[in-house]
Design a binder for these strands. Structure first.
Lengths: 191, 191
DNA sequence: CGCCACGTTGCACAGTGTGCAATGATTACT
DNA sequence: AGTAATCATTGCACACTGTGCAACGTGGCG
């Protein structure tokens, strides 16, 4: 990995840290982009080179589904709740996330409507990609099912992540199982 | 209805019209709040008295589920897809919406990420209320099911509205049936 | 008529986000 | 090693966003 790339990654994290710290201390509303930049020891202009706004800075980089790693999913014939659990559970195993940091972030998110909103918008972005994958598996004539189910699955993922953040006994490996379980519960309650 | 209330409603609509018109003509990014205010013949300050930002102005008033009218839902024992269809389908029968206006709005929404996001956030707000209603029906020990299912149901509603906007043959009365059908499709594909 | 409530407006001000160009450091190439 | 290309940082200027406040005017009501 490049020196430049390492520095870039570090700066991104510095800014995120500064943002989370200040938001926890004074509240997000009272935290200006100027203050965050100063805390992270960069110029205001640089802040905007990394994140488009406060909210994005706190949430950090969005994690992306890689279409490439979804080939097996498209071809699989196993039950959907199971496969979706595997596909989405892997997301957080790939991206290393500190549980402590995540908890801080969630604390800030919970008490800030604008942040809650962006949090869910992030989920929608993931769901949009997943919808394409699901359409490839189910066929073009099941677009509606694909769209609704992808939303549902991402929501199941979100709940699983919330669980993981709060429950120390839960391991990252359990994520897939929790997602699958969540999906099965919904299916059960609907019939 | 009061003269004042009528004027207030009218102004709100004037501003929305102005916003939609200008956004369609020049694109949302090139449309400033100043321009919208001018087009609607009010001051910029007044614009912000009605809407917190451009996006909200274009989407107009958010429609709210009335907890009061959901009593029957909580007590009902009919299949959930059916009841959810009835509950949510009623939403758009209560609020009179011009199909032509809705189509314009959707056109602007489709080509503006920030609007797409706020559109989705609106849905989440509805889902949050619905989650409470569903929890009341399913019981406190089914919170997860309630949360996931409420998201799913609102998504089914959104799809139904999109259908209605595009399909001239579809009537408002059909909304409930479409929602129910959407939910059943998801349940079917999951098993 | 006269009082109160409420909507509108201008103004000032803090904060947001972007384009541009200069500077300095890293990387790549020879 | 030396040179050229590349990239990140930064300051600056500027347009736009959103809010608090106070003044003003009109509708509602006794």
């Amino acid at each position: 990995m490049d020196l430049r790339q390492r520095r870039r990654l570090q700066t991104a994290r510095d800014i995120q840290m500064a943002a989370v710290t200040l938001a926890l201390r004074h509240g997000l509303d009272c935290t200006t982009t100027d203050a965050i930049a100063k805390e992270a020891a960069v110029s205001t202009r640089t802040f905007f080179n990394y994140y488009p706004n406060k909210e994005a800075a706190i949430l950090g980089e969005a994690l992306k589904i890689d279409m490439a790693g979804a080939e097996w999913f498209i071809g699989s014939t196993a039950p959907l709740p199971e496969d979706l659990g595997l596909l989405l559970g892997r997301l957080y195993q790939v991206a290393p996330v500190e549980r402590a940091l995540l908890m801080k972030i969630l604390e800030v998110v919970e008490e800030n409507p604008s942040l809650r909103d962006m949090f869910h918008v992030r989920g929608k972005a993931t769901a949009d990609v997943l919808a394409d994958i699901l359409t490839a598996r189910l066929g073009e004539d099941r677009q509606i099912e694909a769209r609704l189910l992808s939303d549902l699955a991402v929501r199941a993922l979100t709940e699983a992540v919330l669980n993981w953040a709060k429950d120390r006994d839960m391991r990252l490996d359990d994520m897939s199982a929790v997602i699958t379980d969540n999906l099965r519960r919904v299916a059960r309650v609907m019939t």
